[in-house]
Nucleic acid binder design. Structure first.
Lengths: 109, 109
DNA sequence: TGTCATACACAGATGATTTAGGTATCCGGG
DNA sequence: CCCGGATACCTAAATCATCTGTGTATGACA
């Protein structure tokens, strides 16, 4: 089974970039924030989250740094790089483009 | 690279079901229609199309039948079954749900 | 002391799509 | 008459994101 019922494939990068564009966050907080803002519709599993973070960091779009979290524990905070900001714009445009196209098809009469 | 720049993962089934819900079509025509209606934003490659059609047929959501196409050639026309119509409703609702959730995140201030 | 929430990470399976082929027919132009 | 382009079907291999399932560790709380 394992239908991807909780995430639209390919949007996770966008969601992460957007989430930390407001302020740097650590992985756990990023996942929580996405779930919260989406009213628990989007579920970010850790098995998707951490690989995505490493991927994004390797591409140079985000940068990680160990700091103390709100709870006083050490956590890896990720911030957008300049390239990441550009990438975010790109992914936003791409999402807009594709989701509008899907809308055209499903609104077809 | 091979970025999925021409299709949102997981939406192809929805797009196909919707396209033949108006009137039965053969594979080639389905792909053309989707591309046309989306202003060529969505590209349906044959390597994605035919496996998807077979998948949908196996699930009992569409039924194929050989008939003559507009051009006089034999082609396999696919029509929605009753279960397919139900499935289409489901996928429409799901898409609405998920894309709205994404919108919430990317419009986050 | 033990359990829950926080926090990171990875390995293996899954499954849709991309890439890249292959077959065959029909039509029109040269 | 032949050849290229459009139509029409199909499949195999590779890629890659995500899911499932684990494992580690700490701090708070009861």
């Amino acid at each position: 089974m394992s239908k991807p019922s909780d995430l639209i494939q390919g949007t996770l990068d966008l969601l992460i970039l957007k989430t930390i564009s407001l302020e740097p966050k650590h992985g756990w907080a990023i996942a929580n924030r996405i779930e919260q803002v989406s009213n628990d519709v989007l579920q970010v599993t850790q098995g998707a989250l951490y690989p995505a973070l490493h991927r994004l960091e390797q591409q140079g779009w985000i940068r990680g740094e160990w700091r103390a979290s709100d709870t006083g524990r050490e956590a890896k905070f990720y911030a957008l790089t300049r390239a990441g900001r550009t990438q975010l714009e790109k992914e936003l445009a791409q999402w807009e483009r594709l989701s509008s196209a899907v809308a055209l098809v499903i609104d077809m009469v």
